[in-house]
Amino acid sequence: MFCHHLKALCAILVTGAFSTHALAGEVNVAVAANFTAPLKAIAVAFEQDTGNTVVPSFGATGQLFAQINNGAPFEVFFSADDTTPAKLEQAGNSVAGSRFTYATGALVLWSAKPGYVDDQGAVLKKNEFKHLSMANPKAAPYGRAASETMDKLGLTDRLKGKIVEGQSITQALQFVSTGNAELGFVALSQVYKDGKITGGSAWLVPESYYQPIKQDALILKKGANNPAAKALTDYLKGPKAQAIIKSYGYKI
């Protein structure tokens, strides 16, 4: 009798384990480099709350776009702009109605050295540095915003010989962090946490100096039949994910 009950209990436990496993999914996500830290934090909370696992690939928006068009197995795309997802949508490479703005980013001129960058950005006009880092404007929306800022300040011609260009905003930050450039244009989210710049010195570039960095996400065609893809985009609109996004200096 005891053995019979034990077998029944084991059967229930095994069935339960398989059911839980069956509910958990995995989603392959292409993520614009500026959103690296927030996405990693959101992925942890998402897995805890839903059991689904996020498998991220980080890079410049233009590079990710090319990979998607070349058949990369991404199911959700978090872009650093709104125009690239719109192109995917128009080409029929996404789930209809899934595109939404998940964050609006900000550009900052940053140096790893405390006191090096003043809060008005006058350091640019003084032009006493050897190297200025930024992301490739053709591949990265934050690079484009940096280019627009220099145009606005009338400094493009004066500074072009000093620019060190990263293929993504992550690489642009690395140039400054490692001292290969004294300062650089990076995403605020890369150097900001819980209400303050986390180190060095910075100038928050006025929003009027560049086109708004509206960052859109969508479910790609490859994710159409994956419930975890829909679960992730829904989760991003929820209070827990939005609190994380705001903590990195983004506007919602």
Rank of each mutant, 00 (worst) to 15 (best):
G154F: 07
L155Q: 03
L155E: 02
L155A: 04
L155V: 01
T156G: 07
T156S: 15
D157M: 13
D157S: 14
D157Q: 14
R158K: 15
L159H: 01
L159V: 03
L159P: 12
K160F: 04
K160V: 10
G161E: 09
G161V: 05
G161A: 13
G161L: 10
G161M: 14
G161D: 10
K162Y: 10
K162F: 08
K162E: 06
K162S: 09
K162I: 04
I163F: 07
I163H: 06
I163S: 05
I163A: 01
I163D: 03
E165W: 02
E165Y: 08
E165P: 02
E165S: 15
E165G: 06
G166E: 04
Q167Y: 06
S168T: 15
S168L: 12
I169N: 13
I169E: 14
T170L: 09
T170R: 12
T170A: 15
T170G: 14
T170K: 12
Q171D: 14
Q171K: 14
A172K: 09
A172V: 14
A172E: 11
A172N: 07
A172I: 10
L173R: 12
L173C: 00
L173V: 03
Q174E: 15
Q174V: 08
Q174R: 09
Q174H: 10
Q174L: 14
F175N: 00
F175P: 02
F175E: 00
V176G: 00
V176H: 01
S177F: 06
T178R: 11
T178H: 10
T178L: 11
G179K: 05
N180S: 06
N180T: 10
A181H: 00
A181S: 08
A181I: 00
A181Y: 04
E182R: 01
L183N: 00
L183T: 01
L183E: 07
G184S: 03
G184L: 11
G184N: 03
G184M: 10
G184D: 03
G184H: 04
F185Y: 11
F185H: 12
F185N: 09
F185S: 08
V186K: 03
A187H: 12
A187D: 14
A187K: 07
A187W: 07
L188P: 00
L188N: 01
L188T: 02
L188D: 02
L188F: 07
L188C: 03
L188I: 05
S189F: 09
S189H: 06
S189L: 02
Q190G: 04
Q190L: 11
V191F: 03
V191Y: 00
V191Q: 03
V191H: 11
Y192F: 15
K193V: 07
K193G: 02
K193N: 13
K193A: 13
D194R: 10
G195C: 02
G195S: 01
G195K: 09
G195Q: 02
K196N: 11
K196S: 13
K196G: 10
K196I: 05
K196R: 15
I197D: 11
I197K: 07
I197H: 08
T198R: 09
T198S: 12
T198P: 05
T198M: 11
G199D: 14
G199N: 11
G199T: 09
G200E: 10
G200Q: 05
G200F: 08
S201V: 08
S201H: 13
A202M: 08
A202I: 08
W203A: 15
L204W: 03
L204P: 01
L204C: 12
L204A: 12
L204G: 04
L204T: 05
